[in-house]
Nucleic acid binder design. Structure first.
Lengths: 197, 197
DNA sequence: ACAGCCATGTAACTCGTTACATGATTAC
DNA sequence: GTAATCATGTAACGAGTTACATGGCTGT
């Protein structure tokens, strides 16, 4: 029937299962704080394209409204998941294998061919990565905190909390690995210096 | 000059810095055992496309040869990185930021919306994931072992070893996280049973 | 003889991105 | 008044995939 929907489509559908009617713009914002860590943050244009597709298949309903009710006001379209959408999402979850994660890790890719450049350059890259990880950790921590109070079994944010904790641990592990790599490069680099951070 | 090369192009270029002349087919095999874990394993057609591009820009040289030297034999094309290729790769490493990793994690995506399906279904997914992680760990361990003996500073496989160790640790951490999630689901699931594995 | 691997490529297509275009609303 | 944010879309394009097509070589 409707298995020709990209995963991102189901991801958007999933965002709509948390109870609210959302505009495309709001979906983008939600994606930026959640999906972005373990899937992608789709471009606005992609979101509108996907909403169009979901709407065509009856998996979401669009609700066009005049902002503020005025005749000349701005048109705002909110989307809600339909029963058919719930079923399609459920069928996807239950009947298609999740698949193995794909990691596009430019830091590891460059580390792999570290012999092509100076050790100092590689160290710099790793330091930069740590800084970006700190930022990601801060962002994700904030999200995780915002779920407190509704993260127990039976409560709405149980699963998002589980995922956020997993993500936090993952970023921590990345920091550890980066530091280990830095240590390995620092101890035995061409120059006699040790790691600086 | 030549910054219109996709990352996968540089990745292929990188594979050619380890000393051998490789055919497109062999590049695919190398990618399947190394790149696949932290970048992607490009399709054959993508590899040939990329080799064509690199060749057009003079970053690799193609060496067309008759297999076995016979006039009617099969044509085999091997590729080697050129000096210009080394420079381009180095320039890319030194002058463009690596960028933050992108993780496409269907297991986490589905766990996030776990409330859509039965807990048992989610548990099943996590169990399957553990099995796949075991496979990945076995594969990567084999690669890592094959690097032993040339993984010290100054030796050719120092950086690949560093990356392999990082990867092994990462997969271990994923297993841990999966078990934690399973525990969390098992203890408090709707049915009174505990986790089965 | 035949299966399986080695080897190379083209064509069609999809996902997703960036750039462009438009305009209303809100906060300062 | 004007900058930032809210809101929606189109067009062009690029990276990468699957399907298709071809054919030689190797082991049994």
């Amino acid at each position: 029937m409707s298995q020709d929907i990209p995963v991102t489509g189901y991801a958007i559908l999933g965002l709509l299962t948390f109870g609210d009617e959302l505009t495309g713009y709001e979906i983008k914002q939600r994606a930026d704080v959640t999906l972005r860590f373990y899937w992608v943050s789709p471009a606005m244009s992609q979101i509108y394209t996907e909403l169009r597709r979901l709407s065509d298949r009856g998996l979401v309903v669009a609700d066009v409204r005049r902002d503020g009710g005025r005749e000349d006001g701005r048109e705002v379209t909110t989307y809600a998941i339909t029963d058919a959408g719930q079923e399609a999402l459920r069928a996807w979850m239950d009947q298609t294998p999740a698949g193995f994660p794909v990691l596009k890790h430019p830091v590891l890719l460059r580390l792999l061919i570290g012999h092509v450049t100076e050790t100092e350059q590689t160290r710099q890259m790793l330091h930069d990565y740590v800084a970006e990880l700190d930022q990601a950790l801060a962002d994700l921590s904030a999200v995780r905190e915002s779920l407190r109070g509704a993260d127990e079994p039976g409560q709405p944010f149980r699963f998002p909390s589980l995922v956020a904790d997993w993500g936090l641990d993952y970023f921590d592990a990345e920091k550890r690995h980066t530091r280990l790599a830095l240590a390995s490069l620092g101890e035995t680099g061409p120059e006699g210096e040790t790691a600086t951070a």
